[in-house]
């Protein structure tokens, strides 16, 4: 990893949510727990993990849409949390976010064309009216929405809304797109359209941070996959290896099996020793240890459970650009998958 070529570089991100209750005192949830993240120009980095693992929070933090408790986010070498508001607005055109909620990317009272025109007016102030219109048409054509240009979001389908949101984002010529679940809630055919579009844009030198638990999407377009659990990144794996290697974090292994089971209905659900998927045992010794340890069959089998609960496992390299935060790595892991 050469520091210079990083588009986005985040170090030691910590984000806590506090719920305040007058009578019982506040409760703190740790959404991000010392997360490091690097994104190089032109690559697609995928964040996978179950709901509540902190994927969306991470996406919002690196675009400064929410505050940060500790750590530093560098975008093109510049500290994102140090720039003032005016500068931040300027920078925003370089990193755009596609929101998970498909209606969230669009204003309900504006047509697609109006929205694009407004974006171009903001981000490309040099263009004249005719140029803007031409440009908007090009963008609409790129996402295949030209015939629906004068519609408002309410009369667009889910896939069309996604594409409209994407067109708007492309109007800023962003360097980084944070895409939060770009295919959730879409049926298979529309999903494929979106995947193709994302793929095509990837060919045009766009960089993505892709937040998704759709492993099909991740396998198709990601270069690198980061697995998140309970606010920590517990594995980094090259996308082609995802599900193809035996060296996975036990949690990743479970994610893969869950996905395969969901996809392949013919396979009868075999007896598995998957324990209930809650961390508890006191939040893995108040998070001093591995957050997967209470659910981890491997740790039990290897007899290292007490260590897993007390110590946070460091990253262990198990292959090229492939590491796992697990005390069981690497040799013993092979045994986990039967």
């Amino acid at each position: 990893m050469s520091e210079r070529s990083d588009l986005l570089s985040a170090r030691g991100l910590v984000k806590r949510f506090r719920s305040r209750s007058l009578l019982r005192g506040g409760q703190t949830t740790i959404a991000l727990d010392a997360v490091d993240l690097d994104v190089h120009p032109g690559e697609v980095v995928a964040l996978i993990g179950e709901s509540g693992s902190g994927k969306t929070t991470l996406g919002k933090v690196v675009t400064r849409l929410t505050g940060l408790d500790e750590g530093q986010v560098l975008f093109e070498g510049e500290d994102l949390f140090a720039v003032d508001r005016g500068e931040l607005r300027e920078r925003r055109r370089s990193f755009q976010m596609v929101f998970q909620n498909q209606t969230a990317n669009l204003h309900p009272k504006m047509s697609v064309r109006e929205m694009l025109d407004e974006s171009l007016r903001l981000h490309r102030p040099g263009l004249g009216e005719g140029e803007r219109r031409q440009h908007a048409d090009e963008l609409l054509d790129r996402v295949g929405l030209l015939p629906r240009a004068d519609q408002r979001p309410a009369s667009l389908s889910g896939g069309e809304k996604r594409r409209a949101g994407l067109a708007r984002i492309l109007a800023t010529k962003p360097k980084l797109i944070v895409a939060d679940e770009p295919t959730s809630g879409l049926d298979a055919a529309i999903k494929l359209q979106i995947i193709d579009l994302l793929k095509q844009l990837k060919g045009e030198k766009l960089t993505y941070l892709l937040i998704s638990h759709d492993l099909g999407l991740v396998r198709r377009i990601a270069d690198r996959v980061l697995v998140m659990l309970k606010g920590r990144i517990i594995e980094e794996v090259p996308a082609p290896l995802l599900g193809q290697t035996r060296f996975h974090h036990p949690y990743t292994g479970r994610l893969m099996r869950a996905a395969d089971l969901a996809r392949d209905r013919r396979r009868p659900p075999r007896e598995r020793r998957d324990p209930p998927r809650v961390t508890r045992p006191d939040e893995a010794e108040a998070r001093g240890g591995c957050v997967y340890s209470p659910d981890c069959a491997l740790a039990e089998r290897l007899g290292i459970l007490s260590r897993c609960r007390r110590e946070r496992p460091p990253a262990q390299v198990v292959g090229e650009s492939h590491w796992i935060a697990c005390f069981g790595a690497p040799s013993e892991l092979a045994e986990e998958d039967e």
Binding site: L65, R92, T103, A104, L106
Partner: peptide, 14 residues
Amino acid sequence: SEDYILAHVAHGFR
């Protein structure tokens, strides 16, 4: 608190 207003902030509008 609507997402689309946050999206407008994210998009860079004043």
